[in-house]
Design a binder for these strands. Structure first.
Length: 275
DNA sequence: TTGTGTTTTATTGCCTCC
DNA sequence: GGAGGCAATAAAACACAA
């Protein structure tokens, strides 16, 4: 049934046109004028010629419309429906089957294109976010080294009077850093209660899923640092997912060793993200 | 008009299911 | 082993710029 001879396929090609018998019958029945008779004869010759050459013939727009409607209902074709459709449209059942097959192939291609654009949009969004976080991370690292340098010089100045005091390590303890950030926050006039406000602002900007507000990139580094903490606090409440969520949880659970807090902002050791 | 790219119709070969 | 589906492909029909 799958394989068919050339006569069957040719028959399918000309199936939606009047047969030679039909043309002959009409001539006998209606007795055409000489001119019309000649035209019919030439048509007859053309018809035979096309049948012999086996040219493809496109389906009419009505036939295609009907097939499309049927495809929308169900893209697979049961034998009964195939025969019924073929009868309704004056086509061979095989033509209907082929049309459905090709139509499914076209649909699949389109679907792949749609899936691709969705995935690409997702990827672009994530990449944009990642770049933004990377920039922020860099700025924070720079600020941290500035603070460390400042602290070192202050320590050196006061070192003359308190030599017995334990030397300041190259990296501050996490408690000291925390105290310093708290001071910074109070200097900026912000309080803990502002954290939700930042989050809400951010979410109202349409960055609710992952994003930082990129407009913050040009703000002063102390502001960005404070914002970072505010965001961290807010996100621990908002149960952030993935990378950010992990950072917040680490902070909450005091998982930072002194060394870790030193390296935390290191751009060279950016966390690897498994997409 | 013609060359070229795209779409549509049909064929072939292979695979799976019953 | 027959029936039907799918991927790859051929070839005709069509669209369109030059």
């Amino acid at each position: 049934m799958k394989r068919f001879g050339s006569s069957e396929s040719l028959g399918a090609l000309v199936s939606n046109f009047p047969s030679k018998e039909e043309v002959k019958l009409a001539k006998d029945k209606y007795g055409y004028s000489k001119e019309f008779q000649a035209m019919l004869d030439s048509l007859e010759q053309e018809d035979i010629g096309e049948e012999m050459s086996g040219k493809k013939r496109r389906l009419s727009s009505e036939q295609v419309k009907a097939l499309e409607r049927s495809f929308e209902v169900e893209n697979k074709l049961e034998p009964e429906r195939k025969v019924k459709l073929a009868e309704e449209l004056g086509l061979q059942p095989r033509q209907v089957a082929i049309w459905f097959q090709n139509r499914r192939a076209r649909w699949k291609t389109k679907q792949l294109e749609r899936d691709y654009s969705v995935l690409k949009a997702d990827y672009d969004g994530l990449k944009h976010n990642f770049d933004s976080l990377e920039r922020q991370n860099k700025a924070l690292a720079e600020k941290l080294s500035q603070l460390k340098a400042k602290l070192f010089t202050e320590g050196a100045e006061s070192n003359g009077s308190a030599k017995e005091e334990s030397p300041i390590s190259t990296c501050k303890s996490s408690e000291n850093i925390e105290v310093e950030f708290k001071n910074l926050k109070t200097k900026d006039g912000s309080s803990d209660g502002d954290s939700n406000e930042v989050l809400m602002k951010e979410e109202s900007n349409g960055n609710s899923s992952l994003g930082y507000n990129n407009n913050n990139n040009n703000s002063s580094s102390s502001n960005s640092m404070v914002n970072w903490f505010q965001l961290s606090e807010s996100r621990s409440v908002a149960a952030g997912k993935g990378f950010q969520g992990q950072l917040v949880r680490m902070e909450e659970q005091s998982l930072f060793t002194t060394d870790e807090s030193c390296n935390f902002f290191s751009v060279d050791q950016a966390p690897s993200l498994h997409w």
